[in-house]
Amino acid sequence: MATFEEKVQKQVEIIKQRTFLDPTLDMVFKKIFSKDVTLIHFLNAVLHPTEDRKIISIVRKKPASSLMSAIDTEEVRFDVHARLNNGTFVDLEMQRAWHEDFADRMELYADQLSIESKIHFDSQRTATERADHPYLMPTTYSVWICNFPVNFCESYHEELGLFRFSSIGDPDALPVYNKKRYIVIDLSKVDAKVLDLNTAETEWLELFTRMASAKAAPKTSDPIIADVYSRMKVSLHENNFITEIATGMVTEAEISTRIGTARREGKDEARYEDAEAFLREGDSIERVARVLKLPVEKVQELADKIKNAKQ
């Protein structure tokens, strides 16, 4: 059986045979949207704002947020978190695989986004404004790009909100609260017919569904899309970056396999066993905590235990 290092090296070789990096991978996704102009372009494409609400600037917000309870503290880490010039707050997430608590995760992230946004929103208001409208909330968008079939999506682009049950079946129904919005982009439902629409959004959809296997960049008159293809060429990136991508791919694949086995065998403690195994193989505390959905503090304790045992 191949060692972890051998699996990583094999994945590195596979990546180097491609023209472009896979935009659905965590590190690549974040690198794409590290440029403000790119994030602004994407959000204008998928949020469909009216002309007077077009996004022209953003302010990056901290990616990590602590969710505290009476018994534990869990870290919610946003992929891309920003405040827009129109006062809206956005969390942009890339999700590569379905899991049974996906809808709950969406709601948890949206709730935490609302709390973080409310705190910042109130910090920008006067004492009088806060006293007159203490519960006033800013608008938030939780945007999820999903590289798998989402069971509650009928189309490639679904916008969710708070509706009355009595409005079910009414095509003209409006949300009763329009400040907390969800957009789910289901890449599995993107086909040639969708791409033929030839909009800014569908150019992004083509990028997310075809770039990883493309031999050359598609013809486009959009300089932002062209820039992403140019920046994501495999040949432009150093070996260390590609190795880190490959390590993440192998780690997540093996962890997913172990989680599946553990669930079938009913071993909840297997996640901690897996965490220790991957830490011993040199994977980072943050990645193990994120993929195994364990508290960072617990994974840090395991890492300290391993380190002390070696001394």
Rank of each mutant, 00 (worst) to 15 (best):
S66E: 15
Q124R: 13
E51F: 08
R264H: 12
Y109S: 07
S65H: 11
D196P: 03
I168V: 11
F4L: 09
T38W: 08
L207T: 03
T243A: 06
S69H: 07
E129M: 07
Q311G: 15
R287I: 10
I245L: 05
H133G: 01
L43Q: 00
G87E: 10
K307S: 12
E116H: 09
S221H: 06
Q300I: 10
I224F: 00
R125D: 02
I259W: 02
T19G: 07
E276V: 07
E286Y: 04
K16F: 11
A70R: 12
I115N: 09
D122T: 03
K7Y: 01
A212R: 12
F29Q: 00
P223W: 00
V296R: 09
T209H: 08
S213M: 11
R290V: 12
I14E: 15
P138F: 13
D283T: 14
A82E: 08
Y272K: 13
M27D: 15
K233M: 13
T128Y: 08
S57D: 13
A214M: 04
E13R: 08
C146V: 06
V80M: 06
C153P: 06
R105I: 05
R18V: 04
D111F: 09
R280N: 09
T257L: 09
D72K: 11
S34G: 14
W204S: 10
R210E: 12
L205K: 09
S256R: 07
D122G: 00
P149Q: 10
F42P: 00
P134S: 07
S123K: 09
A270V: 07
A253W: 08
Y109W: 11
I255G: 04
D274T: 15
R53F: 10
R271H: 04
R231C: 09
E129I: 01
H99N: 04
D111N: 13
P149N: 12
D36E: 11
E75G: 08
A103C: 06
E93D: 05
V299Y: 00
A309E: 15
V76K: 01
V176F: 12
I32A: 10
F241W: 12
L21E: 02
V250P: 03
